[in-house]
Design a protein around this nucleic acid. Structure first.
Length: 588
RNA sequence: GCGCUCAUAGCUCAACGGAUAGAGCACUUGACUACGGAUCAAGAGGUUGCAGGUUCGAAUCCUGCUGAGCGCACCA
């Protein structure tokens, strides 16, 4: 993202809260099993490194504040790896491999660490003791719906504005992408503690609404759409509905007729947009009408304030914002020479309104065709005497349609616009949302129209959902056998020592970090990719490890432990899919 | 011309400066008389657009180039 979207925002509370730690009660019950989540392992490595450096009289300040623990791609490199020695060695003037070997020696003495080896230029590869990894399963089951939640953003009030499509037509494909991604981003930010308000801005003031209303009237009169107007079946439908509600509307004087079509027609459009978004699983806390800013005088007040502060100057009959002084590439007209406010006037008043409502951060999700707004919105903030950093603009690239290998050009006039409802009708809400949330918004997205028409399951969402429903089925079967997972504290999770079990457990352990990264980087697609990884790990585990006792086989502690692992896995699927706004089916 | 974004397997896309660049789809070959085969195993498929630079290490950061999308209003 441009504009600082990747920059981590720290709040006072983020230092205080830190990463979630296992509860004390749990630690007392399970001294061996507490703490070997990735976060705890990172802390263990860090404290060990502090001891090692201090013991050798070296500067412990050279260590990074948070040690990076990652899962190596290559399983031969252990369960986890850290590059802390590589990062630190140069600063304190030692050879990376030497530092790594000192750390390895110290860590190898820890109960939870099965092995610690130096590799390559100074990586430290760690293997956990099998009984230590069980703590991850326990943590996921203990936290349940809360597994994956965090507190880094606690105390931060975020206004998340997305979609905000013009109320002159149905939501199109691009809008659907922002609806899916914005909604998921809102859920991700909430999961990490932020107080999020989802907001939709209706641009219901200005010339485009007039064009829309004239188009409705033309349709009602059976005339063709105005040159600069809107065409399409929905215009006829809305015009017809206006006539149904107000049969005498066409006989009104022109002014009143226009106002009646505006009042009824625009409301109908609002209703339709809200309804289709709701059916798409995206609901907003606030639908904000630009018109209200003009009627309340908020726009006038904001403009007067800017005149007073000198942020505006008068030239050629218009009032200009000195936006170049705030990083924009040119000055912008705020009040046109005909006396009407320009579009940006509403933006300025709207931002002021948001901030007066107490939001610490205002996130805007905009399409690539609006990227020129970044400088403008930041300039607006600066001109208001506000902190431009409180404005964060996320730019998402466009959605293209491809058919028979060729791009499909969408045209309002040709009636080839694909709407969000068309997409949902073709593939359903889950597949539509998932296909749009699984990739980065930095890249334009090509959707294959032929595949959509065929209703094919060519979508990884089914791979993920199938894993969840398979787990749900397995847990049902267990219940039929009188085998409830029961209290995980009573299971011997140290029995989960199979390679496939270890892989699955460690992936479960990644979930909180993935959600955290998705929130910090404003990249909810990380959650979708994670779920695909988890599904793969689960299916491979399932193939290799029998969970339920067969026939008259006796139920063993291993069966019980695996059942706990399955319960934990199901929980993570449910939590992850919930973040994406995709259903977690019990059956498929 | 200036700016933003992108360029990775046949296709759609991942990979927060880390080790041998990964998934899904498509393709080849295998695996179902007990937990869901919408699954799994194996194989094939790559000069990460090109050229330099930064460093222990670059798909990732910097510069230039090529190509694509989108912007560059007293429209909204």
């Amino acid at each position: 993202m441009p504009c600082g979207g990747r920059h981590r925002r720290r709040t006072a509370s983020s230092h205080r809260a830190g990463l979630p730690q296992p509860g004390r009660d749990q630690r007392e019950h399970f001294p061996r099993l507490s703490g070997v989540t990735p976060a705890a392992l990172a802390e263990l490595v860090r404290t060990t490194a502090v001891d090692v450096l201090a013991g050798r009289g070296l500067d412990t300040a050279a260590l990074p504040p948070a040690v990076t623990i990652e899962r190596p791609r290559n399983p031969e490199h252990g369960d986890y790896a850290t590059n802390v020695a590589l990062q630190t060695a140069k600063k304190i003037g030692v050879v990376p491999r030497d530092l790594a070997s000192w750390l390895a020696e110290a860590l190898a003495g820890q109960d939870a660490i099965a092995s610690a080896e130096v590799a390559g230029p100074g990586f430290l590869n760690l293997r956990l003791a099998a009984d230590a990894q069980g703590g991850i399963v326990l943590e996921a089951l203990r936290a349940a719906d809360g597994y994956g939640r965090g507190e880094e953003l606690a105390g931060t009030r975020i206004n998340l504005e997305f979609v905000s499509a013009n109320p002159t037509g149905p939501i199109h494909l691009g809008g659907a992408r922002w609806a899916a991604v914005g909604d998921a981003l809102g859920r991700v930010l909430s999961a990490r503690g932020a107080d999020v308000t989802r907001e939709y801005y209706f641009n219901d003031a200005g010339a485009q609404i007039d064009r829309f209303v004239r188009s409705l009237i033309a349709a009602a009169l059976g005339e063709s759409a105005p040159e600069d107007g809107y065409a399409g079946a929905y215009v006829n439908d809305i015009a017809a509905e206006v006539l149904r509600q107000e049969p005498s509307v066409l006989s009104l004087p022109e002014q009143e007729r226009h106002e009646a079509f505006r009042r009824v027609g625009v409301t109908l459009m609002f209703t339709e947009i809200k309804q289709s978004l709701h059916e798409f699983g995206t609901d907003f806390d606030v639908f904000f009408h630009e018109d209200s800013l003009h009627r309340s005088g908020a726009v006038g007040e904001a403009v007067e304030a800017l005149k007073t502060s000198g942020a505006l100057y008068f030239e050629n009959g218009a009032w200009w914002l000195r936006s170049t002084e705030f990083g924009d590439d040119k000055d912008r007209v705020v009040i046109k020479s005909d006396g009407d406010p320009a579009y940006i006037a509403g933006d300025i008043a709207y931002l002021k309104d948001k901030r007066s409502r107490g939001f610490d951060l205002c996130i805007y999700m905009l399409g690539a065709d609006h990227h020129g707004y970044i400088g403008r919105l930041k300039a607006a903030a600066a001109a208001l005497g506000d902190d431009p950093a409180a404005v964060e603009v996320l730019i998402g690239q466009m959605v293209n349609l491809v058919s028979e290998g060729k791009p499909v050009r969408m045209s309002k006039r040709a009636g080839t616009v694909i709407t969000m409802e068309d997409l949902v009708g073709a593939v359903g809400v889950d597949a539509a949302r998932y296909s749009m949330t699984r990739s980065s918004v930095d890249s334009s997205l090509d959707l294959d129209l032929d595949l959509l028409r065929k209703h094919t399951n060519d979508n990884p969402v089914f791979y993920v959902q199938y894993a969840h429903s398979r787990l749900a089925s397995l847990l049902r079967n267990a219940a039929d056998l009188g085998l409830a997972p029961g209290d995980p504290a009573e299971a011997d999770l140290s029995l989960l020592a199979h390679d496939r079990e270890g892989d699955l457990i460690r992936t479960i352990g990644e979930f909180p970090r993935v959600v955290g990264a998705a929130a910090e980087l404003r990249e909810p697609h990380r959650v979708a990719r994670y779920l695909e990884q988890l599904a793969g790990d689960y299916h491979r585990f399932y193939e290799a490890c029998r969970v339920l006792p067969r026939g008259d086989e006796e139920t063993t502690p291993l069966h019980r432990a695996r059942l706990q692992l399955c319960a934990a896995t199901r929980q993570v699927f449910a939590n992850g899919l919930a973040v994406l706004g995709v259903s977690a089916p019990e059956r498929m």
